[in-house]
């Protein structure tokens, strides 16, 4: 997360490969930690029938975006945790490509709100307004896309 020094070294690729390897190791570890537990939890919730029961209540709401009630779990995971968490929850649901696209568009615009809002705060004092804007834009764009492709 620290700023990189911008002085070019004689062999820039060496440092880049080292940094890339370090980033990749950290990324794979992060992926396993985030994705596996959520994927497992989703499979268990699905098999126990609990997810379907909850989804029954959320289906009318999610229907606005052409999504099944179960997708609400993926939406929450994406908004509050991150996109990898959303992918872990969405993967076992067996969504169509249209549904994945709508979910991907909503979450592409609005995701990881807790962490990213902190970054935006460092950029501008209007960070609260921008976070509301992201969620609103994401939901609106997803709704329009669903109208077009689903």
């Amino acid at each position: 997360m620290e700023a990189r020094p911008f002085t070019p070294s004689p062999q820039p690729w060496r440092g880049a490969l080292q940094k890339g390897a370090a980033r990749s190791r950290a990324f794979v570890w992060f992926l396993l930690k985030t994705l596996l537990p959520l994927y497992l939890a989703t499979e268990v919730l699905k098999a126990s029938g609990l997810l379907a029961w909850l989804a029954g209540y959320l289906a009318p709401l999610m229907g606005w975006w052409g999504l099944p009630g179960e997708a609400a779990a993926a939406l929450c995971a994406g908004l509050f945790i991150n996109l990898y968490a959303a992918a872990a929850v969405a993967a076992p649901l067996g969504l169509s490509w249209q549904q994945v696209s709508v979910l991907g568009l909503i979450l592409g615009i609005a995701h990881s709100l807790l962490v990213e809002t902190a970054v935006v705060r460092g950029l501008t004092p209007s960070y609260k307004m921008l976070t509301v804007l992201r969620v609103g834009l994401g939901l609106a764009a997803g709704w329009l896309l669903a109208l077009v492709i689903i």
């Binding site: 990189r4 070019p8 820039p12 490969l17 890339g20 980033r23 990324f27």
Partner: peptide, 10 residues
């Protein structure tokens, strides 16, 4: 990730 690092290094 490797691509980003190379792009940044150059």
């Amino acid at each position: 990730l490797f691509g980003y690092e190379l792009a940044a290094a150059y």
